[in-house]
Design a protein around this nucleic acid. Structure first.
Lengths: 337, 337
DNA sequence: TTGAAAGCGCTAACAA
DNA sequence: TTGTTAGCGCTTTCAA
């Protein structure tokens, strides 16, 4: 072993008095190694504290046991929750998740979205929030990859989408059924730019049409980065300007929390004066006061399908890509009547 | 180029009519390449869509430009916030952060904490929350590594600690100065097991001693995983059992949110009946109702010092390891008087 | 200024 | 059952 360095398979082989190949076979539990030989190798492994060099294994064998989840932001609880679910689902198979930050396309911070980076993994789960069609289309090669989230993307990739429109429709219909007539959509967007804001605003609009309630576009309150502070500021401003509203559909739970803060500081009671629904079913919504009614995006199904599709590609399956839209459901809690 | 595969440097060299070595020199901007040659190589790079294989580079050159932040949980906002800060700080240097989940020692989920995994990175920032001295002591080799968080750990590593005791003392002293006499420490622990709970409980105790207020150990309300639900349940139970308290020092903001929920459901006003202080300065605390007074753990300083120490090791410096304790400060907001 | 050779640590394929 | 050969894609060294 090179002094000061980490022991290699060569060191193990030398210590056990076998060839490097036999050491490899023994270490990896491959058959056709005599029990006595195997034991000598494993003893040497213990004695030296050998662990495989995953970089070398990946270069040679093309696998490292690592799957990447690439998300636009590391500091949104939504992605942390999702990452924890994927990590848990991968663990039994001996695989391992790492979280990569892609940044958003507009800001030109796509460091993680290069062939070079993604090639380090056995597979990539790519959240396409904030990405453009072209960003993803640049990706070549046959890296197993599954796209997550609702945005128009190259059809050659497997793609699991949340029921954004359907969830927004459910949430808004629930508010309208509970008597609301002035439902603000906080974090909404009227533009054509596809994404969370616009698709969920679309569901809000459809629910109004289905209920025969006219839509007032002044009730669309933007919160571009979908942060709590923006949701709070948007509702603050609307109330200060005297905009009439008796309900809030927040396009994410984070934005909903901001809305709740604003309503509270203006003395509006929830759900008495204003009913509130969020989207994402973050665990913290359950413990707010009042507990937040929200749309469950079914991350359980997302994880299940995404890994199924990823494994299918990893096993060399060349079937046509699947484009799934998951079902959603409403979790009724105390912030609506 | 192997059909269907990703182009390699060999493909670029062939296309440009130079040797692989010259292509490498040109691509990496090394000197001693004739301008015309360099241009031909770069043209070939563009034409083929070549990107360096980071696995091969790491195996040969020992660097990949990737730093890992290993944390016990991906779904605690605390770590997401910290990760985002590290990612931002690394970006200007062209380096890249990935987030690894270590799990907690007790549950035997230390998948990420193997030599093998960590060796894939140029450096590792290891949050030692939930880890044992022995887990970390197993790590050999000269991988640049900085430990984060207050726990007894092998002294041979650089180690940046938060001012846990000092922060808890500040928070508790603030409550006592504002008239509180029955300060519950939610998420606290009386045992000797070192960690967030016990060190912050220690600060709570010291503040009482300094103020001459007797400590009542019944006011130590555990929340082992420091989750919101546990904080809520702990305070719920205490109030149901008639435990007298006029203030809460929650050892994390997450636990503080749970405490706020419990206080609210028991009709206790904050800060009127019960004052509340958290710890961590999570951004969501600013937007709660009331806004949460909290201890700022100075993540800005943590990031600055951790990267300084990491870079020092990466440059081969053999200086004695540093063991820093960061200063903290109290952010006074509306949940205290 | 350019290139040939060697090898990082590992494993697939084949030979003994 | 064990070992030999070759090479993954890159970069360091050294020669041309």
């Amino acid at each position: 072993m090179r002094s000061g360095g980490v022991p290699t398979l060569k060191d193990v082989a030398a210590a056990a008095g076998v060839s490097v190949m036999t050491a490899s076979n023994a270490v990896n539990g491959r058959p056709r190694v005599a029990p006595a030989t195997r034991q000598r190798v494993l003893d040497a492994v213990d004695a030296l504290g050998y662990e495989v060099n995953l970089t070398a294994r990946r270069l040679r064998a093309g696998r490292s046991g690592t799957i990447a989840l690439a998300v636009p932001r590391l500091d949104h609880p939504y992605f942390g929750d999702l990452a924890a679910r994927f990590a848990t689902a991968l663990a039994p198979g001996g695989r391992h998740l790492v979280l990569e930050q892609t940044g958003a396309s507009k800001e030109g911070e796509l460091t993680a979205l290069s062939q070079a980076r993604l090639q380090m993994y056995d597979g990539v789960l790519l959240s396409v929030v904030g990405l453009q069609h072209a960003d993803v289309d640049r990706l070549q090669g046959d890296l197993p990859m599954v796209l997550l989230g609702e945005r128009p993307m190259p059809a050659r990739f497997d793609h699991v989408m949340l029921g954004n429109v359907e969830g927004a429709r459910l949430a808004t219909a629930h508010l309208l059924a509970r008597g609301a007539r002035r439902v603000a959509v906080v974090g909404g967007a009227l533009d054509e730019e596809p994404g969370v804001s616009s698709t969920r605003t679309q569901g809000w609009r459809e629910a109004h049409e289905a209920a025969g309630v006219p839509v007032d576009e002044r009730l669309v309150l933007p919160a571009p980065a979908l942060e709590m502070a923006e949701g709070r500021a948007a509702v603050d401003r609307a109330l200060a300007e005297g905009l009439a509203l008796d309900a809030v559909f927040a396009v994410t739970d984070q934005v909903a929390m901001g809305a709740l803060a604003a309503l509270h500081s203006h003395g509006r009671s929830v759900p008495g004066d204003v009913q509130v629904v969020g989207f994402d079913a973050l665990s913290l919504g359950e413990h707010l006061w009042p507990a937040l009614t929200t749309v469950d995006p079914r991350h359980d199904l997302l994880v299940e399908h995404a890994l199924r599709l990823l494994d299918r590609r990893a096993s060399g399956d060349r079937a046509d890509p699947e484009h799934l839209v998951l079902p959603v459901r409403l979790l009724e809690r105390a912030s609506t009547r």
